[in-house]
Design a protein around this nucleic acid. Structure first.
Lengths: 204, 204
DNA sequence: TATTGGTTTAACTATTTGGTTAAACCAAGT
DNA sequence: ACTTGGTTTAACCAAATAGTTAAACCAATA
């Protein structure tokens, strides 16, 4: 009947909604602002996505899934723990660096609707057991020092995510609003965090 | 003129507002909900604090200052880096554990109003230079391995804060909603994080 | 007891905001 | 050219919500 201009508009809405929702969270975002961002009328949002809730749901699911698949692959790959940590940390930091507001977005939603987020994670294929098993295996094989695998994993994730969540603080308090320096810092971290972890668990 | 019942009410409002704001953020919170929580009329909120903004400001400043002074003392104390890390991590985790929603609250506000938060931090007396200097000193004195002090500091903060921000994920995905296990995990971390850090930077 | 002045309440207002609707628009098919 | 059916718009509605106001309340005190 007509061209699939609908796909364009629908996608444009999603992109705009992503920008606004990720920045302001569900409650902070205004439908009007999303419409403006997409350069369309407010009624279009409802035409394509029924309600604010539905639109948010679409944005959240899409945003979340951007973070996951790559990392699942890495964790399942059959390589040494040290290599795995290097690749995981490097990729994770790179991915977040491309969408640096995502962590705060997920944290906000995690507070607002913990069950949904947990459910999403569970059904995403993320399973910490792979990583934990490998750590335990390499401890037994005397490749690394004894270490609690769960704490190790949480430490790794923490060090990757935190600098993005705390970006305004780092940029404002440490780097005197110099974005360049902050970006260098983030790039450094890919090596720095790995060295820090491996240094801590390697056999002496 | 009258008793200082006003102080009671004013304080009651602040407590109630803290609970609601910390949990739901500025936009998610409703004045009516705060009034209900305080067991008073909605108009009282405006009588004592003029506007939602002003009330939020009061809550945020108070909440933030709960986090800071203790830690500033520790950082300035003249003890070895290892001792300092042990005390800092232990105290920081304990303090947050008493108000576990504060980190997410600050993160949310950090996104909404970065400048205000950065200003507040700057004027709070927090100064990373003390910590950084000590790290550099102990490197020169050959007490610890060479390490980038800034990354070290960020790593430490990250590992302390992250488990609270990600609590629903840990509890839901790792501990199968068993709050007890999560609490044990947090307690373990006070030792685990310190060992992890010190292990990484100590001379071999 | 009557006055005073801060405190509290209930009812009200103005505005914001998510959502609806009916009509206009436009590209494709006949 | 005209019909058709999805797309887009402007105007509108209803609910939610921050904020206001005027009157009632109450404890101290003269």
């Amino acid at each position: 009947m007509t061209t699939n201009k609908d796909t364009n508009t629908e996608q444009a809405i999603l992109e705009a909604a992503k920008i606004v929702f990720v920045k302001k969270g569900m409650e902070g975002a205004r439908m009007q602002e999303i419409a403006d961002e997409a350069g369309i009328n407010k009624a279009m949002l409802h035409y394509y996505y029924r309600s604010k809730d539905k639109l948010f749901e679409a944005v959240f699911t899409e945003t979340f899934s951007k973070l996951v698949p790559n990392l699942i692959e890495i964790v399942k790959t059959d390589i040494s723990l040290f290599d795995k940590i290097r690749i995981f940390v490097g990729n994770y930091i790179d991915i977040i660096n491309e969408n640096p507001l995502i962590p705060a977005f997920i944290i906000h939603e995690l507070n607002r609707n913990p069950d949904r987020v947990v459910e999403l994670i569970k059904s995403s294929g993320i399973n910490p057991i792979f990583f934990i098993n490998q750590v335990e295996k390499e401890i037994i094989e005397d490749i690394i020092e004894p270490v609690n695998p769960l704490h190790l994993m949480v430490n790794m994730l923490a060090m990757c995510v935190f600098p993005f969540v705390a970006r305004p603080i780092l940029e404002g308090v440490i780097f005197n609003e110099d974005r360049e320096q902050y970006e260098i810092f983030i790039q450094e971290r890919k090596k720095e965090v790995c060295d820090f972890i491996i240094n801590s668990i390697k056999k002496k």
